[in-house]
Design a protein around this nucleic acid. Structure first.
Length: 381
RNA sequence: GCCCUCAUCGUCUAGGGGACUAGGACGUAGCCCUUUCAAGGCUAAAACCGGAGUUCGAAUCUCCGUGGGGGCACCA
């Protein structure tokens, strides 16, 4: 029948041919050993109203509905029959499900009526759309590339990519619902106090991934240095980076605000992994406020200081004080800035790095001295 | 094709007849701060899909259109 309808250019649809079949005929067909399904007689006219907590009443013309199968030919019930029974006996009060279920709601409503059971409240939630492409974002898919951005889908993927669970929860709660009072950062307890189903925005939304980065950074910044170190280490270990917990602990107080994701720690510790100072030229180690001779003197002073510092004084405060002083002495304008800039380059090999003094402590005395010596050689030669 | 549904800055949203010169956030741009990059502070550009109604008055209500999403299984 289905094939005949398609062949005839019609929409395949059950024609209700057995809707009012007589008991005799049923017996006759059964005797023939024909397989069969059992359908639910839906009303032929009138309307079925699905009360929805988010959208209000959704009205369907019964003439548009069909007689749904409630028992398959295997004798097993279909989902439609099963949920209604299951939800009823589980004393479900609210059915919240995706938008894609609205069209099946009328059969459920009619089944509740047929059973004479109290209907739970329905709430059809908006779906989440693909970031830039078309269609909805399926929960069953995995992360995929969309243009040049990686679209994460599963919670495990968010975790693997350095997002904190509370940040993800905050982010998700903020889609389709808003906390109010222009507040964007909030926890589950606070939002639960305010949450009402009817406040949900019925429109489908795309995930604003850039905003997730911002939220995640907000949560990372709220972490104590110890907690941040603890969150970062698993990633260091996962990727077998030759970096110690002590090193991360030194950087933790100053890198939090630089991390959108925990995995951004990689670029912060780059200078520990590869020594890019080998490519530096003498010119890069000078500054218009600090010529070659001054630079040489400054780097030499810095090297001597670092090399002579007892381990117990090899710390951020001590290094900061001394290096600033050295910078001020050897710069035309008596500001530490120019020297600290070149020192960053000489020590990390990068123009951009975590704050210098912390970077030095994390690098360690020996390596710092070695890199400074290289700079001195460049400037001298 | 038929049915259901949705529609405010680029994005997530606030707003539900006069409080709208349409608010916030992300992102973007500029400035300040600053040893770099960030973070932080300040400022800026940026939206009511279109058309008819209803009304003294519409982003808000109604209808039509357009566009988006979903559905039309013996799957859930």
């Amino acid at each position: 029948m289905r094939e005949a309808q398609i062949a005839a250019g019609q929409q395949p649809e059950y024609d209700r041919r057995y809707r009012d079949i007589s008991a005799d005929e049923v017996a006759r067909l059964e005797a023939d050993g024909r397989s069969y399904v059992i359908r639910f007689k839906m009303p032929l006219d009138g309307q079925t109203v699905v009360p929805d907590a988010i959208r209000g009443d959704i009205t369907f013309e019964n003439s548009q509905l069909t007689d749904y199968v409630i028992f398959k030919s295997t004798g097993l019930p279909t989902y439609h029959l099963a949920v209604v029974i299951d939800d009823h006996f589980m004393e479900i009060t609210h059915i919240t499900r995706g938008d894609e279920w609205v069209n099946t709601a009328p059969i459920h409503v009619k089944l509740y009526e047929a059973f004479g059971w109290e209907m739970p409240a329905f709430a059809h939630l908006p779906v989440i759309l693909n970031p830039s492409g078309k269609g909805k974002l399926s929960k069953r898919t995995q992360s995929f590339q969309d243009g040049n951005t990686l679209v994460l889908v599963k919670t495990s993927e968010f975790k693997e990519n350095g997002y904190l669970p509370p940040a993800l929860i905050n982010f998700l709660t903020n889609i389709g619902w808003s906390f109010g009072d222009n507040v964007e950062i909030f926890g589950p307890e606070e939002s639960m106090e305010r949450f009402e189903l009817e406040d949900i925005n019925p429109a489908a939304a795309k995930m604003p991934y850039e905003k997730l980065d911002w939220i995640n950074n907000q949560y990372i910044m709220k972490l104590t240095p110890e907690a941040l170190t603890e969150q970062i280490m698993p990633f260091i270990e996962r990727d077998n980076l030759p970096i110690t917990q002590e090193q991360i602990a030194v950087l933790a107080p100053v890198v939090g605000m630089r991390l959108k994701r925990l995995t951004d720690i990689y670029e912060q510790v780059q200078y520990l992994l590869v020594d890019e100072t080998v490519n530096l030229t003498a010119e890069q180690l000078t500054h218009k406020k600090m010529g070659p001779e001054a630079a040489l003197a400054a780097f030499t002073a810095a090297r001597d200081f670092i090399a002579d510092t007892d381990d117990e004084y090899f710390n951020v405060a001590g290094i900061s004080e001394r290096l600033r002083a050295i910078g001020e002495i050897h710069t035309e304008n008596e500001k530490a800035g120019p020297f600290l800039g070149t020192a960053r380059l000489a020590i990390t090999g990068q123009k951009v790095s975590p704050p210098l003094f912390e970077s030095i402590v994390a690098l360690g005395k020996d390596e710092t001295v070695a890199r400074l010596n290289r700079a001195i050689e460049r400037l001298a030669g």
